[in-house]
Amino acid sequence: MTRKFKLALAMAALALSAQAAFAQKPGVERLYIMNCGEGVAGDIGRWSPGVNEGKPMDFVDTCYLIKHSQGWFLWDTGIADAVAAMPNGLVPADPKAVTWRRPKTLASQLEQIGVKPADVKVMGVSHTHPDHIGNVEMFPQARLYVQKVEYDWPGANNEPRFKPSHPVELLAGDKDVFGDGSITILSTPGHTPGHQSLMVRLPKTGVVVLSGDAVHFKDNWDNRRVPSMNANKDQSAASMQKIADTLDKEKAQLWINHDKAQRDTQKMSPEFYN
């Protein structure tokens, strides 16, 4: 075998190796922000005790679909799609709470980008309030990541919060979902006993932290206000500090789920972040 032939073989092997590495490159490829509800809170004083008492405020509800090299991951599922058919929206018994509407269904937004519910193999929810788990059973085959303390937390009339048949992985803290550091569930209790947030590493956008309801809008974040309905005030404060430390360490952005002013500046599906 001549030296020239050996060199050619070595270069060909190197090229194939590079192609394989590129094809198998782990990580997040894109992130879609989906409209999962819009509403008006009758009195935002419950979210910011002692401030803005009696004032109404627009809310949004957001879901995030993430394309990872190992498959589709959905974070939060929003208000139930069935609300789209309600002329007056989902009206709460308490006029101070949020009246939710569903201008776009989650199903239609998935269809718009060519994703079937069956394509979603893994999902997580920040917590088990209805505006975050409304469409969980649209994905009966998807493995659901939830903190064990949240899963065991009794629902209305002590009923379970998910169908017992739904595949679930119960967590006791942070979780690196795909084992490559690209999508990490962060345990951030306080709003509910097992609330969690999500850290996502995007190749161009950088690191973003999806708040869930660890914080509801920017003014509360800036002033570290804890809503009166939260399960635990001290845990809530500690979780906000954990998020702040994460933002600082990772040079990350905080995307606040219910903050309309922020979401109005963001690209919505079918556009995406990469």
Score class of each variant (00 low, 15 high):
232 N>H: 12
225 R>N: 08
220 N>K: 15
139 F>H: 00
106 L>G: 02
160 P>Q: 05
54 G>V: 02
266 Q>W: 15
189 P>E: 07
223 N>P: 01
155 G>E: 10
154 P>R: 00
144 L>V: 07
133 I>L: 06
88 N>A: 14
70 Q>S: 08
235 Q>M: 14
267 K>T: 12
223 N>F: 04
236 S>Y: 06
67 K>A: 10
71 G>P: 03
46 R>T: 14
150 E>W: 00
12 A>M: 11
223 N>G: 03
140 P>E: 02
155 G>Q: 06
105 T>V: 01
39 G>N: 04
185 I>S: 04
61 D>C: 14
235 Q>E: 13
29 E>V: 06
102 R>W: 01
61 D>L: 12
84 A>Q: 11
9 L>A: 15
22 F>I: 02
74 L>H: 04
259 D>N: 06
254 L>V: 09
260 K>C: 08
216 H>V: 05
92 P>G: 02
40 V>R: 11
21 A>E: 13
165 S>C: 02
242 K>F: 02
99 T>E: 03
209 V>W: 05
159 E>M: 14
32 Y>S: 01
26 P>L: 07
26 P>T: 08
257 N>K: 06
52 N>Y: 15
52 N>K: 11
148 K>L: 12
186 L>V: 10
4 K>I: 15
130 P>N: 12
159 E>G: 11
249 K>N: 07
131 D>L: 05
272 F>T: 07
248 D>G: 06
184 T>F: 09
6 K>P: 00
206 G>H: 07
178 F>N: 00
51 V>N: 05
185 I>W: 08
79 I>D: 08
207 V>T: 14
185 I>Y: 09
38 E>N: 13
251 K>T: 13
242 K>P: 10
52 N>E: 15
